[in-house]
Computed example of a mutant assay.
Amino acid sequence: MDPVADSVMYGHPRAFRRAVPPPAALCSSLSLLEDLESQPWPSPHSVQVLIHDEEDDCFGLWMMHDGRLVEVPLPRTSRYFWRNHYTGEVDADCPGILMRTDKCDASPDGD
């Protein structure tokens, strides 16, 4: 495998490993998820991805289900989204932020 500058390695030491560009290079965690979904995983059912975006309080866990990476709800966490001030709709390209609900400032001014 060719090394990728400033790459992230993921995978179990005895399992298949792949280097990916850092999330900033892929523009967003949504782009990262799409890139990971398109990879030829030898055992897709064993894929587990931990993502910690800049604003997140903790890592989010994503697992492959029916060929798509789906976020697995974690205890004491909640994902929040902000609505557009003009349309009132949630931006489909915004992954939101994952926050812990067991701390005193756990509810942002989102939905």
Rank of each mutant, 00 (worst) to 15 (best):
S43I: 11
S29F: 03
D109F: 03
S78L: 14
L69H: 03
M1P: 06
M63E: 13
S38K: 13
A15K: 05
P23F: 13
V49R: 00
P95N: 06
V4C: 01
I97S: 13
R79Y: 13
D57K: 06
F59E: 07
P40D: 13
V72W: 02
W41F: 01
E54H: 11
D109C: 08
R76M: 07
L36A: 04
S29R: 05
V70I: 15
L26A: 10
P73D: 12
Q48P: 02
P22L: 05
R17Q: 14
V4L: 03
D66P: 04
R79Q: 12
V49S: 01
M9V: 10
E54R: 13
D105S: 15
L74K: 08
L61T: 04
E71K: 12
T87C: 05
E89W: 00
G110E: 08
D53Q: 08
D6K: 11
L36E: 01
N84F: 05
D111C: 07
D105Y: 15
C27G: 11
V47T: 02
P22M: 03
D105A: 15
R76C: 15
L30W: 04
F16T: 01
D53C: 08
L30K: 10
V70F: 14
S29E: 01
F59Y: 05
F16L: 00
L26W: 05
C27V: 10
S46H: 05
K103D: 13
C94V: 04
V8I: 06
G11Y: 01
